[in-house]
Design a protein around this nucleic acid. Structure first.
Length: 487
RNA sequence: GGUCCUGUGGCCGAGCGGCUAGGCAGAGCUCUGCAAAAGCUUGUACAGCGGUUCGAAUCCGCUCGGGACCUCCA
């Protein structure tokens, strides 16, 4: 297996990936909270990990990819006075909390399918693992690293930090965190300012609550990931991922919980994806500057000139490295769309290339560069740059300006299959249905007639036909060996 | 306020001590009845000011922008 390097947030550098138990790989990614529509920022993270999942699989690893669904509801503030998001929405719409969960889970799956993201191997829900969360909470209390006050259980961060590095993931200093944490309401029961809840006492009106030895309540915000990753991937696994915004609080606390529970770091590699921005600002639900995926597809949004297909958006995202911020704009989207079309067009051209006895291009070297790019922390922008080199070669061979042997043509086909379709998860947009089939025949017939006009040098008529077809959305291109067209 | 990240040609976006990124847009050429497509050629970019070095977009310092986290968020 070829060496793969990835950036580990824990060590803040690129490291060679070594699976704990090859060829098996355990990967956990923090999934969405299903209390409203997924927005593009979520999608970007999941698409980045989709590529990572696909590439690991391509390299021959047997990956168990676990991505949770947070359906138990998180508090609105880091204190036990908030109301959980899911039940808030539920009251608003007069729906059962699980009805909200169901609606948005289905919506989430639909969107990810449109983006051609593979489903994870296991997609566990927080509400399905209440017992596991309670067990871990209890175990942490027994270790003396958590305490119960009035039905709420808190993790004792300062006590934990005496024997362990609480801030390993961020590299911050504990003292600074203690000094800089803002004063928040409702922190009265906590012993330390950094302490966080493992189990929260529910008020009677709280819709989502479960029985526990500490009374009626619901799990804290970080414990679900510890519970589910441990259950499905073991106490230690290979990769843990999520958005960068989860790093300082959610993931830091998750590590603390795992170490408190079983004495081990949950995983060797922590990977974080960067944020999506709109006009320079983080796209976020709370800022209200997010587009919904369907708004992007339809173009039905004040900030968008028109719609962009899911594959175009996926390609657009792949043109930026997962650890860089990605800014959304119409111009950038349009530029990507053109590039994407050219790339996909070249795949069709590749199918009809004629072989020569020798090659004027080094396809093997190009393939090696593609692997090199992906092995360097999943550098999809560089991979795409290499694929555009392949586009140039294919087009130029089609123009008879370069030559390729059959073996090289086959290798190019393999590269497209491997990198474009299997690893990047792009696909040709669907054009196969009866209407287009009939339309194809009609266009061919019109072009036949037009060719007769051309043969008679009746260019006025042939141009008129071409213009009218163009107006109807059919683009005609005249080549040496006849005309081609596309919609 | 604290901690950290970031600033690349008209736009997007890689690179992160010496070697072409790439895409989109623009210009020229080839091909073509014309057009389109495609190919080829073309851009003397690295916020500013200092410093380290034989050599810096890439390392260090300062200044000025932008952003993230510190509070639920992918």
């Amino acid at each position: 297996m070829q060496p793969l390097f990835l950036y580990n947030t824990l060590t803040r550098k690129k490291e060679e990936f070594k699976a704990l138990n090859p060829p098996f790989v355990g990967m956990y990614v923090c999934g969405p909270t299903v209390y409203s529509d997924v927005h593009l920022g979520n999608c970007r993270t999941f698409m980045s990990f989709d590529i990572i999942y696909r590439y690991l699989t391509h390299l021959g690893y047997k990956v168990r990819y676990v991505r949770n669904i947070t359906d138990a509801g998180h508090l609105e503030s880091d204190a036990d006075v908030g109301e959980d998001k899911i039940s808030k929405k539920a009251k608003l719409q007069q729906l059962e909390p699980m009805e909200i969960v169901q609606t948005y889970t289905v919506d989430f799956h639909n969107v990810m399918k449109q983006f051609n993201a593979l489903p994870p191997s296991i997609e566990p829900t927080a509400t399905g693992h209440i017992l596991e969360q309670q067990e871990i909470t209890e175990a942490i209390i027994k270790k003396g690293l958590a305490y119960e006050v009035n039905g709420t259980v808190y993790f004792d961060v300062e006590k934990f930090a005496k024997d362990h590095n609480y801030t390993a993931l961020t590299g911050r200093k504990l003292e600074e965190l203690l000094e800089n944490t803002r004063d928040l309401d409702g922190q009265g029961d906590k012993r330390g300012r950094l302490d966080f809840a493992l189990w929260i006492k529910a008020k009677p009106e709280h819709l989502m609550q479960w029985s526990s030895q500490w009374g009626k309540g619901f799990p804290g915000w970080h414990i679900e990931c510890s519970a589910m990753s441990t259950k499905y991937l073991g106490e230690q696994f290979d990769i843990h991922g999520g958005g960068m915004d989860l790093q300082p609080t959610h993931h830091t606390n998750e590590i603390a919980q795992n170490i408190a529970y079983c004495g081990k770091q949950p995983c060797n590699y922590w990977m974080h994806t960067n944020m999506l921005t709109v006009e320079g600002q983080k796209m976020s639900k709370s800022l209200g500057n997010s587009f919904l995926p369907h708004e992007l597809f339809s173009g039905n949004h004040p900030k968008l000139n028109r719609g962009y297909s899911p594959m175009c958006v996926r390609f657009f995202m792949m043109q930026t490295h997962y650890r860089s911020t990605l800014d959304f704009s119409n111009e950038a989207l349009q530029a990507s769309e053109k590039g994407f079309e050219r790339l996909m067009e070249s795949y069709k051209t590749l199918q009809s290339l004629t072989a020569s006895t020798s090659s004027s291009e080094d396809i093997k070297a190009l393939e090696a560069k593609c692997y090199e790019a992906m092995n360097d922390d999943f550098n999809t922008p560089v991979l795409i740059a290499n694929l555009f080199e392949a586009v140039r070669i294919i087009n130029s061979s089609n123009d008879k300006k370069t030559t390729l042997t059959q073996a090289d043509i086959d290798l190019l086909k393999k590269m497209y299959q491997n990198f474009l379709f299997d690893v990047m998860g792009l696909k040709l947009e669907d054009e196969n249905n009866k209407t287009t089939e009939v339309l194809g025949k009609v266009v061919e017939m019109v072009l036949d007639i037009r060719n007769k006009a051309k043969a008679d040098k009746n260019f006025a008529l042939s141009d008129e036909v071409r213009n009218k077809l163009a107006a109807a959305g059919v683009e005609v291109k005249d080549g040496k060996e006849g005309s081609t067209w596309k919609i």
